[in-house]
Design a protein around this nucleic acid. Sequence first.
DNA 1: TCTACCACACTACCATACAAGTATGGTAGG
DNA 2: CCTACCATACTTGTATGGTAGTGTGGTAGA
Lengths: 232, 232
Amino acid sequence: MYTNGRAQEPSARETVYVKLREQILNLELAPGTALSEKESSLVLGVSRTPVRESFVRLAQEGLVQVLPQRGTFVSLIDPALVEEARFMREHLERAVVRLACAHFPDGHLHALEDNLALQLMSIERGDDRRLFELDEAYHRILFDGCGKLNTWRAIGQMNVHLNRSRMLRLVADRQWRHLYEQHETILLAVKDGDADRAERVMQEHLLLSVRDLAHLMDKYPQYFITGGDGKP
Amino acid sequence: MYTNGRAQEPSARETVYVKLREQILNLELAPGTALSEKESSLVLGVSRTPVRESFVRLAQEGLVQVLPQRGTFVSLIDPALVEEARFMREHLERAVVRLACAHFPDGHLHALEDNLALQLMSIERGDDRRLFELDEAYHRILFDGCGKLNTWRAIGQMNVHLNRSRMLRLVADRQWRHLYEQHETILLAVKDGDADRAERVMQEHLLLSVRDLAHLMDKYPQYFITGGDGKP
DNA sequence: TCTACCACACTACCATACAAGTATGGTAGG
DNA sequence: CCTACCATACTTGTATGGTAGTGTGGTAGA
């Protein structure tokens, strides 16, 4: 018996789920797009079962909406969810960054420094997709360093809605420098143990993420929920 | 054609999911218990498909753990998750109760009053299960009144882990009066708009929910994760 | 007695067939 | 021309059979 070296090739369900999720967050599958178990199964070369089970997971995350006997659709962006995601992140990240100012492991500190360096390179290259990932990683490292990784994961579920609108914003607008400078300032404050400063900058930083939301809703109205419950 | 009055009888998957979830939270299905698609399908009188899809949902919530080709098990309680759930609730509920002190709809205020009255009756009857539900509803009303219902739902996913340990605690210990008095104090503070007081009591209130966690881990060690990753 | 091996029962995974509800386009009737 | 109806082609929901991996208990051999 060879020990399999933790390779453990992923299940069909997992690969399908990851792929669909990525496409939805990238807006390759735009909000409102109709999906179908059969079509996805043909495209991805698997049977309906793993596709269907991925739909169940995505539906629970609020990324798709399953209407029995009618169809499955990529959820429209709900501005209320976006705002509440920001609300959650604001209060939890303020708390976490205060913890970080009190105590933060050296290893994670170095990870933040490395991350910032990579951010700078991504900005110079104009690689927005990569910068987006690094931004996520930056905040994740902060939570991890404070022993609050599960909290970050819990935020994740709401965060996908925030991120879809942020992705939309990246297309038109781009103020990456400002974003980078805030990350830099937060890291310095953590190093200095200046909790008040860190908390204040973090709050501003997260406010930035929903700026111009109204503008986006005006520009891409078909991607947002207008009235009641968000059915296409 | 009769309009069906929004009855829309629930799917097999939904009923199975709700039933299993309830049993896990009630500890009727104790942490570590082995499940199986086939057995559950026989017990619940449906085919394996809806059971399997329920397992997918429960696994995503962290309530069960699916080991491919080996079995499905009710997750052990992870003390780190319990503590982080408390952490999330502490910071988010402090923020929400401050909002409530600034502005809170009359309708929701009345709902809180009614809820408190019912709590008192449940305490007199010694109906702990009902009191537990009312406690959940109380906090839910607070979030709803502040337009943060989605935030409450997001907390819910972490909350299930906190609630399993709270349920365990209900069995041995019981200090319902204290719980009720805190709820009462918070309501009064919201009425008076005394944000500082409301926030302070809320923090104490949530600390109560993890008191004696170490004691519980000592008393029911088989229900908790000890070392690494929580596999039974 | 102890060890290595193997058959067997069990698991979750996936593919597929069937059932039941829904939207739609064409057509017959007014 | 307009309306009501119906066949049909979709959709998701459920049931079931086969596959491959895993644990276990019994047995043959040393």
